[in-house]
Design a protein around this nucleic acid. Structure first.
Ligand SMILES: [Mn+2]
Ligand SMILES: [Mn+2]
Ligand SMILES: [Mn+2]
Ligand SMILES: [Mn+2]
Lengths: 217, 217
DNA sequence: ACATATTTTTAGACAAGCCTAAAAATATGT
DNA sequence: ACATATTTTTAGGCTTGTCTAAAAATATGT
């Protein structure tokens, strides 16, 4: 498994829900910030190794083996993110790029001991589930904030966009995992929302509410 | 800095004491388990970047910049080794290969926070000094066990060979950093030694005694 | 000193992973 | 249905880091 192969498998996993639905060459190219022709080359190589199902012009999905590899990379990525936040005082907007590097370190003992050291966390700093040793992960109930009705109250349990810019925006407005959010207004015209966080009201656009997951209380 | 460039700089550093004395193409090739022609290619590239001093046929040494890079890689390598032993319950013979991967992770914040998390260790699990943020490291007084006279007593403070096989041999005979060693016999013929460790005597060959550092008490 | 051995460099090739440009296949609109 | 747009693949090329084989430089022994 090269670093590049691992990144392709991860991209395919994220694009088609758990890599099960076929994803297009262009979608992969965009996600990986590369060209479609490069994707075609790599996808052939992965198909050769039985890591993806590939039919010319029909898109790509992960095989059982491909899913195992992708899941193990994601497990490592998320465990390292937990480590960085909990042990090394990183903020949730700082961890992703470093985890992108750390996820490729190869050592079963390392990842399993890290898991134990962190006391077997089930979710990463962005609320995403961490696969266990066997690739299984818990699915936590969550709703997209933009979809809930007025007067709903919930707790932030995750984000859809983990970009540094978005996470910094949330931090600036005191929104973190566990923050209680109440919907006090919805604007039909532009789908903007007024929410209340610790007695402070905040006006948020649809783009924001579309990227926050809450658990209704 | 590519992974390969970093490994060449590290090799040059280790071969000529701190990279200051010129080392031969063949020596680098052997250390890196590659061919001399590959070394020549890479050395040209590093010279172009002003990381090494290179005169055709006359060997290679590190420039100031090259030394800074090499030292920072070694700092990361040794900090990660401490982390693996102290936090993840690795033994000293298990850490090197994983540290070889981890040393290439690029993040100043990561290495400095790791350093703080480990409470600024000065030496790694093999007794080797860890460069600080500025590249400085303490030099600890040490003597090669093979060189000390009969009836000397010392404490193990390091090893010259960090191979898994050698470290496992030491562990098997209860030799670790901090272990007290007394020289109770020396054999002129083959330079073998009889040493006493916690009231047990052990016969060791010159190859063994040549790879153990002690601090005389 | 000079013939021979060793070391180092050069020349040319190859795989991985990427690119651009062109061709082929598929999707879309009327 | 069929012309046009879009997507995907193919063809050919580039860079990095490696290799083998041959040439050049240096070291060594008598
Ligand atoms: Mn991430
Ligand atoms: Mn995450
Ligand atoms: Mn090591
Ligand atoms: Mn070490």
């Amino acid at each position: 498994m090269t670093l590049s192969e691992e990144n392709y498998l991860k991209a395919i996993y994220h694009l088609g829900k758990h890599g099960t639905t076929a994803v297009s060459t262009n979608a992969i190219a965009e996600q990986m910030e590369t060209k479609a022709s490069s994707v075609t080359d790599m996808v052939k190589k992965l198909a050769e190794k039985d890591l993806v199902n590939y039919v010319k012009y029909q898109g790509v999905s992960l095989t059982k083996d491909g899913k195992i590899v992708a899941t193990s990379i994601i497990r490592k990525h998320r465990l390292w993110e937990v480590f960085l936040v909990q042990k090394l005082n990183f903020t949730w907007d700082e961890v992703h790029d470093v985890a992108e590097q750390l996820e490729h370190i190869k050592s079963d003992k390392l990842v399993n001991q890290l898991d134990a050291f962190l006391e077997f966390p089930t979710h990463d700093p962005h609320g995403d589930p961490i696969p266990d040793k066997n690739g299984n992960m818990v699915t936590r109930e969550k709703t997209i904030l933009s979809k809930v009705s007025i007067n709903s109250v919930g707790v932030c349990v995750g984000v859809n966009d983990s970009s540094s810019d978005f996470l910094k925006y949330l931090s600036k407005h005191n929104i973190a995992l566990g923050t209680s959010i109440e919907v006090v207004g919805k604007e039909k015209f532009d789908d903007s929302m007024t929410i209340k966080i610790e007695d402070k009201t905040l006006q948020i656009s649809k783009l924001i509410s579309n990227n926050i997951y809450i658990k209704l209380v």
